[in-house]
Design a protein around this nucleic acid. Sequence first.
DNA 1: GCACAAATATACAGATCTGTCTATTTTCTT
DNA 2: AAGAAAATAGACAGATCTGTATATTTGTGC
Lengths: 195, 195
Amino acid sequence: MSAIAPSSPKRDHLMATAWRLFYRDGLRAVGIDTILAEACVAKMTLYNHFPSKEELIIAILEKRDAEFRASLIARVESAGTDPVQRLLAVFDWHEAWFGTEDFKGCIFIRAVSEYPDPSHPIHQTAWRHKIAVKTLLADLATAAGARDPAALAETLSLLIDGAIVTAHATQSTSPAVSARATAAALLQLAQTSAA
Amino acid sequence: MSAIAPSSPKRDHLMATAWRLFYRDGLRAVGIDTILAEACVAKMTLYNHFPSKEELIIAILEKRDAEFRASLIARVESAGTDPVQRLLAVFDWHEAWFGTEDFKGCIFIRAVSEYPDPSHPIHQTAWRHKIAVKTLLADLATAAGARDPAALAETLSLLIDGAIVTAHATQSTSPAVSARATAAALLQLAQTSAA
DNA sequence: GCACAAATATACAGATCTGTCTATTTTCTT
DNA sequence: AAGAAAATAGACAGATCTGTATATTTGTGC
């Protein structure tokens, strides 16, 4: 998992520019030259920092994963101590995200779509993010006293991924509201009913 | 919505070959030349049948939409008359699909991911399929006596799309099982509890 | 000022991309 | 068998793609 992360201004600037273009237009749709022109950086500088476009994409995905989860966790923390509210805060966070100006879905789902071979490094890197989020959901479900936290986390993950895709295609925040309401109902079921 | 569909052997063969390659490797990843070589068809033949690669993709998406829904509806019909079993048959159908040899997710979700601009014709064509499936789900939810069939159909759609993405990335059929169990629980809630 | 490292511009390779053009051959209809 | 339609091969345009090579400039520390 990329043991070293040699940060530098140029490297960061390249990653920021590449991220913006990749997210807006797609990983395969954006070429190296476009990134270089937009970032005003020479080609050799890019290839001195990254061995290939593929490694650049992977570095961006790993960075986004860290930022994404840090932001999500911050929202959960700000929701207080009630475990139910903390779990539902995940959906509130998504609703706010869906409403942002340039929301274009989830780069990890899109990476999995653009590199459909499950053995591809980009595909695998992208999916590790989803596993990490599901682990977070399982922790929250455990804290909320769910009977089968892993199963609930799995279902909530399905809801979230579906909501992301739908919010993207419909340019709407309402899938987050639907998912949140469903999550609340499922959590109550998992707390009260028998398996 | 493509009023005319001038079917011909060459055209069908091109669409079948292109579909296979697009689904396996991605829409942007597969070039015209690759399709032509694989199909053993001359380039001008393709451009006599389709004005552009984009139109070829759209034609394929519309064909797949029709086939997909016909197969799904057939499964629902074969489930008998019990409205609950008919609705749950949708999830059984997906489980079987996830287990097919070359399952690589949903071409419509992948098209939305590869063409992230919601105003793009390919993006819009792909999403129309999802709307059609959701309409089918709403009909089944109505028949099953759901209190708010549209809301239930929306939630089930989220579950299904999430399950497709997850089944693709994990190469597993179990997301269909999770989604089915959740759907059964939600349906029971929608039949019994108050809004 | 000097040495070293980083970034630059530029050209280039070799492949690939979508789409067009032309001229020839095959196929089908009548 | 004759004429019309469809499909063919193959070259071509012009752009784009990733990645490399080279030589120069810039910036920094000593």
